[in-house]
């Protein structure tokens, strides 16, 4: 039973004469409480795919459905966490979350709102920075604040658009664990976009590669059947992790090569290999070359 569905969708921009087909023939079905990772190269149309799911972008053809109902516009049920945090810079972390909570749950009392804010800020471990403005926070903290805001909407589907790609490696793994913890304690449907194979294998139930654009489409998914919770420390030695990692990496490298070959705007580079780079002989040859024209003259 699929909860979130994309049915033969395609997205194109521009006038008929000069149309850019970003996505075509997209088919995806996500089960309830499933964690899906979409992996693709930058520029492939990942964010467009996410906008499609969030209802921010209407498909040119095809349909996007949640729980059998057509998604026509964005809403708090589709909790989108944006790539560049998109926290409102004039509001503190708490105020950012308050705005979301107050708008989505207008019937809550002041006390309940404050409790809810506290709950989500605690969840992402930001209680000490609740009164800070976004520009006073580090990238990781901003992303956590953004996550708290998205979670505070209590969305049925959590859409994570490259949530961690702007972060350094250490913060990144810390946040991966946090997101997994939160998801495991409070299961819901998650679609995450990423460009990191390790991250995808660590976190997702299913990994769907997005082929290179233009006319990007979703390839055959890889099932990740490792038991949860997954231990980061031991994961590297897990046979399935190794297998999936190499398979997906190979596949991605393959489509990237394919797309390079099919693209005709790239001038093929000459296949030349330098014969000799050793310094002394090169120096001598250079001297000879310089002296040649003078002797000819």
């Amino acid at each position: 039973m699929s909860y979130l569905e994309i049915d033969n969708a395609s997205v194109s921009f521009g006038p008929v004469s000069n149309r850019t087909h970003v996505l075509s023939d997209i088919n995806l079905s996500v089960k309830e409480n499933e964690f899906i990772a979409v992996i693709g190269f930058s520029g492939a149309g990942k964010s467009t795919l996410m906008s499609l799911l969030a209802g921010l972008q209407v498909p040119t053809t095809g349909e996007v459905r949640m729980n059998g109902k057509l998604i026509k516009e964005p809403g708090p049920d589709l909790g989108m966490m944006f790539q560049n945090y998109s926290l409102l810079p004039w509001l503190t972390v708490n105020e950012n979350i308050r705005l979301a909570v107050k708008t989505v749950f207008p019937k809550l009392s002041k006390k309940e709102i404050t409790e809810k804010i506290g709950h989500y800020v605690d969840m992402v471990k930001l209680s000490h920075a609740g009164d800070k403005l976004p520009h006073e926070l580090s990238g990781g903290m901003r992303q956590r604040a953004s996550l708290a805001r998205t979670l505070s909407l209590d969305p049925k589907v959590l859409l994570l658009d490259e949530p961690l790609s702007a972060l350094d490696a250490l913060t990144r793994s810390e946040l991966q664990d946090q997101i997994l913890n939160i998801w495991e304690s409070d299961k819901r449907t998650v679609v995450m976009i990423t460009n990191d194979v390790d991250e995808a294998v660590l976190m997702a139930d299913r990994i769907v590669p997005l082929t290179m654009g233009p006319k990007a489409t979703l390839a055959e998914p890889y099932l990740v059947e490792m038991e949860r919770p997954r231990e980061r420390q031991t994961l590297n030695d897990h046979p399935q992790f190794k297998r999936l990692k190499s398979e997906i990496t190979n596949y991605m490298m393959g489509i990237s090569k394919d797309s390079r070959e099919t693209r005709d705007d790239i001038t093929p580079m000459p296949d030349i290999r330098p014969k000799d780079f050793s310094l002394p002989s090169a120096g001598i040859r250079l001297k000879n070359k310089v002296s040649q024209p003078t002797s000819a003259a």
């Binding site: 921010l56 516009e73 809403g75 989108m80 944006f82 705005l99």
Partner: peptide
């Protein structure tokens, strides 16, 4: 992005005007 936030939160015209 800020306008997208408004869309996700389904802010009305006036709320969008005064909050965003």
């Amino acid at each position: 992005d800020h306008l997208n936030v408004a869309r996700v939160l389904k802010l009305g015209f006036w709320a969008r005007l005064f909050k965003i």
